[in-house]
Design a protein around this nucleic acid. Structure first.
Length: 149
DNA sequence: CTTAGGG
DNA sequence: CCCTAAG
């Protein structure tokens, strides 16, 4: 009958037939917590903080967030279609999570609007030349992938 | 690399 | 989920 189109899609040589490859409530909750705590667009930090494991990249997190937005119905026509929220779709999300997502979706304009940087030293211009960031934590995993040439 | 958007 | 584009 109707073939699946969102989840069980075996792409390329990905023979992950029966292994962990699905977003569960646990992942969603962690996403929500990370976003509500640090903010949207901070996937890198969230990934390093909450999703330290797995190979979920920023793309995956962003994709999941978008999926949540649709599932929670954060954005709607809000003009005429006040009737039904697009039928009753299977919502594997708890009302508590949906509520948080909705709030986060409206308070967070989505984009990198972290403009709340008013404490910008405009007069001081500190010569942050005292630190050669020894970010070992990052350069490590990067060197494995992008360290060509 | 990281984020954002589209397929 | 994968690819592409811009920063």
């Amino acid at each position: 009958m109707s073939d699946d189109s969102s989840s069980t899609k075996r792409r390329k040589g990905s023979i992950r037939s029966k292994h962990h490859r699905l977003w569960n409530l646990s992942e969603v909750m962690k996403l929500i917590e990370g976003v509500s705590r640090y903010g949207v667009g901070r996937w890198t930090e969230i990934k390093r903080l909450l999703f330290s494991t797995s190979h979920r990249t920023s793309v995956d997190l962003k994709d999941k967030w978008r999926n949540l937005l649709r599932a929670s119905g954060a954005y709607m026509t809000s003009k005429k279609k006040v009737k039904r929220t697009q039928k009753h779709m299977n919502l594997p999300l708890p009302p508590a999570a949906v509520c948080r997502i909705r709030e986060l979706a409206i308070i967070h304009p989505y984009p990198r609007e972290r403009k709340s940087k008013f404490p910008l030293r405009v007069t001081g211009t500190p010569p942050s030349a005292t630190s050669h960031d020894t970010i070992i934590s990052r350069s490590r995993r990067i060197a494995s992938k992008q360290g060509y040439t």
